[in-house]
Design a protein around this nucleic acid. Structure first.
Lengths: 190, 190
DNA sequence: GTCTATAGCCAGATAGAC
DNA sequence: GTCTATCTGGCTATAGAC
């Protein structure tokens, strides 16, 4: 792997683990096995490197979501697949985590990928819910946009509960609760 | 207000705004209008001060939740009151936020109040759901513990969505979605 | 491209005067 | 109880040699 590549990957890991504020250039260099001069040769500084890392993480998360949301199954099945998809629960969401970082939220550039990723995810889920209603896989009354927000919020909040309790179980319990509520809306053609 | 008091309050604000990692003793002193010597006279250091601040914040959050959860209304009404209670949405949850802080989660002492607060909240909500089922205010199938986790997760995740989009609206939308799902379980005596 | 040297500033804390 | 002085070390970056 090239040096810039290693630097980006190291930054991604550290951003996930410690956030922007808690991640120092020095720590990045050590994790990447690169010297200071090397890092500043390839990137203008910490914000520049973080931007590259965040963009890649956001892109990866979008792809992972899409992989599980596409496909020919029912709306309910796709939502369940998204909710139950394998996750590194105790590490939290590498994108959602950044919303609690004041320096990230204070920078329009760093913030944009975070905002976009979560926003598109909500939109994608809303579309699936709408599809489900149209096809009779789900029965109303159900507001697609609201349900989509609740789904994403349950996941993001599930991470909080899991980290708080130190066990992934809390995440699963929150997901179970949501699916329990949603299953009451399963339609005949599902 | 006494100096220790001002130091604790300043720490609470900064912890909320910037997290543990992003909060320096110097910033605390300036916000509290106290000198270094003064701070180290009253507290042994940053962890000690943070502990006092976190404990107080946790206590305050428990009280705020209890204030809205107690009372003689129906289970559904109490859950809705909790979800719609006024919040400083864009600032996020002062307790939940700490779960993303590696230094807080790495310290058993700092972590305990966070864990306990979120845990008790879940237990309290589960009790209310159970009560609602018993009284016929809610109709099953409904797993109290799972629903309680979903409620807390929706709130915690709602903060993430709101901060990501820069608007409190996303929080409200997630809450609306959850109440929409839950309202399908409103019982006859409600 | 990568290295070492250097710099100014901040973090976190201690010591001792007042 | 509060103040100033001081300390060690880390952060973030620049300069210039190799």
């Amino acid at each position: 792997m090239s040096t810039p590549e290693r630097l980006i990957e190291a930054t991604r890991e550290l951003l996930w683990e410690r956030g922007y504020v808690g991640t120092s250039p020095k720590a990045i260099q050590q994790a990447a096995g690169a010297g200071q001069g090397s890092m500043y040769h390839h990137f203008t500084g910490k914000p520049d490197l973080a931007l590259a890392a965040i963009r890649r993480t956001a892109e990866e998360m979008r792809a992972a979501a899409e992989a599980v949301l596409e496909g020919g199954t029912s709306a309910y099945a796709r939502i369940e697949a998204y909710l139950r998809r394998e996750r590194d629960v105790l590490r939290g969401c590498p994108v959602g985590r950044l919303t609690m970082d004041p320096d990230v939220m204070g920078s329009p550039e760093l913030r944009a990928p975070v905002h976009e990723t979560l926003d598109r995810l909500r939109g994608r889920l809303a579309g699936i819910v709408q599809e489900g209603l149209d096809r009779g896989e789900l029965t109303g009354p159900l507001d697609p946009a609201a349900l989509a927000a609740t789904i994403v919020a349950t996941v993001q909040g599930g991470y909080v509960l899991a980290r708080s309790s130190g066990s992934p179980e809390a995440f699963d319990t929150a997901v179970d609760g949501l699916l329990m509520l949603l299953s009451a809306h399963k339609g005949p053609s599902s």
